[in-house]
Computed example of a mutant assay.
Amino acid sequence: MFEVAEYIGIIAFASSGFFVAVRNKLDFLGTLISVFLTALGGGLIRDIAVDKTPYTFTHNMPALTILIVMILLILFKFQKKDSIENKPLFILSDSIGLISFSITGALVAIEAGLNLTGVLALAFVTAVGGGIIRDVIINEIPFVLKTGFYGTIALLIGLMLYVLDLYDLISFYTMTMVFFAGIVLRIIAYYKKWAIPML
């Protein structure tokens, strides 16, 4: 379950990182950095937090997956220039990455025996950490700080998995339900413009 969610998140966040790079007119190296940070940054922070060798440093597939996604997106861009910054496509890929990485962060925290605070923290950091680093590097206000409900969804996913674990209900089926429920919630929240009230 962890690996499935991890690779779904990597593919989705690599795509959204690519779209952000194209929107900001970065060169090839800048695009590569944007893609890698978005797809892998949160997972690196997550694994370091639980004193674990980062998954990316012990498996070759994450980096290979990112390179394949990037090559396909470059080819796709050249063939259909109007489609690469298609907003619904960006929102969908970003939503899939958000939910997938929230799940992997929560699972790692649960496996490490962390309490509710730890599960919420790792779900949040895994989901938004890479995007925050990317946005800071390209001199943008991090997306999660402008869209209050974005980070809230990561916390809700963490909470749901913590509760499921308390009752020994974590399985492929419950993970699938949480995954799709999270995506639906994210998309509804985006189009309904849900947000946390400003102070």
Rank of each mutant, 00 (worst) to 15 (best):
Y167Q: 12
A14T: 04
G148W: 14
Y55Q: 12
F36H: 01
A127V: 05
I183H: 09
L145S: 06
Y190A: 14
T176S: 11
I45F: 06
T176L: 11
M61E: 15
A12R: 05
F57Q: 04
L164Y: 09
N24R: 15
T56F: 15
K52G: 03
L145C: 14
E140T: 09
I196H: 12
N60C: 00
V128F: 07
I74H: 12
I11W: 08
I138L: 04
L185K: 05
E85L: 14
Y190M: 15
D168G: 03
G182T: 04
G105F: 02
S34C: 09
A195R: 15
V50P: 06
F172K: 13
E140M: 10
L92W: 01
K81W: 02
V136K: 04
K146G: 14
P54V: 03
G43N: 04
K77W: 08
M175R: 02
I66S: 02
L67I: 11
I138Y: 15
M160K: 11
L32K: 08
L107C: 04
E3I: 13
A12E: 08
L114Y: 05
P62L: 06
Y167F: 14
F57N: 14
K52Y: 00
I74Y: 08
L72N: 11
I188E: 10
S95P: 04
F28C: 05
L185N: 05
V136E: 05
L26H: 08
R46M: 01
G158T: 06
N60S: 13
